[in-house]
């Protein structure tokens, strides 16, 4: 009897490949995963089959070119469950900083033959264009979160991803708070958990790469940053960074 294994695929859009690497870094678990699922498209791993029907589609990268736009519709139509991985796919990524600028001007300033570059004026998250079933944040995404999502879906249960603040994870890890001891403006209180409080565990501040937490009080945190001696511009840059298009961060960053 042949067992039909669920098919999964990983698609790349406008991105740096870091999230695919996080996936690959699962190492042994990735090998074990192939007992339970068929990986049918994952270019970075060598499997190429871009037009197949799949059970779970993972999307890395944002929509930043006309070609991206075309592909995502096709992929959505052929996928049962679609998961965005990382800041680019989920919120537009660092490249969405172009949304605040004149993209044509930038392209002209950088490329010797700007007319050969095909691009959209903005970089937008996948959810702007198609229905997304689950969002996994982070720059890069946490491989363990991907694995848990797959394992849970195999049991036909929708994965529960916590959207609490990084602070809770920071305290569970036994870190000492950099805000309180070093007066460093940390984004942890308004950022979603999932990374294991990576940055504070090496004594530095969180810069918000997992996007906004579920109930972020950006006004109060901005005021606190100001009291810690940050200029308005510094505070804006804290919010308008890797997840600059995430609505809560965008709003806080645009505040005068």
């Amino acid at each position: 009897m042949t067992v039909i294994k669920p098919k999964i695929a990983v698609y790349k859009f406008t991105s740096c490949d870091g999230c695919q690497l996080a996936f690959l870094n699962l190492g042994n678990d990735l090998l074990k995963l192939t007992d339970a699922v068929d990986i049918i498209h994952f270019a970075e791993l060598g499997m190429v089959n871009p037009n197949a029907k799949v059970d779970i589609a993972f999307i890395e990268g944002s929509i930043a070119t006309p070609h991206d736009l075309e592909r995502i519709k096709n992929i959505r139509a052929k996928a049962k469950f679609l998961i965005t991985i990382g800041a680019c796919a989920t919120a537009g990524g660092i490249q969405a900083l172009r949304n605040f600028a004149d993209t044509a001007e930038w392209v002209a300033a950088i490329y010797p033959k700007p007319e050969t570059i095909s691009y959209l004026a903005t970089s937008t998250p996948i959810s702007t264009h198609v229905t997304v079933d689950l969002e996994l944040w982070g720059c890069p995404v946490n491989g363990e979160q991907i694995l848990t999502a797959i394992k849970t879906l195999l049991l036909k249960v929708k994965p529960a991803i916590k959207r609490d603040s990084v602070c809770l994870e920071c305290k569970r890890s036994g870190n000492v708070c950099v805000m309180v001891t070093k007066n460093i403006p940390c984004m942890g209180p308004v950022t979603q958990t999932g990374c294991g409080a990576l940055c504070p565990s090496v004594g530095r501040d969180c810069y918000g790469c997992y996007g906004p937490s579920e109930n972020p009080n950006t006004d109060s945190l901005s005021k606190q940053f100001q009291q810690q001696g940050c200029s308005r511009e510094t505070i804006q840059r804290r919010f308008l960074f890797i997840n600059n298009q995430a609505p809560a961060f965008l709003k806080a960053g645009m505040k005068k």
Binding site: K151, L155, C167, K171, N215, N217
Partner: peptide, 25 residues
């Protein structure tokens, strides 16, 4: 308030926990 949960985490008497199920592959 940032709703960050630092207060309950450092409080010596708070006892709340959440439980999760992690299936094996």
């Amino acid at each position: 308030c940032l709703s960050c949960g630092n207060c309950t985490s450092v409080c010596p008497t708070c006892f709340c926990s959440s439980e999760t199920e992690t299936p094996a592959l």
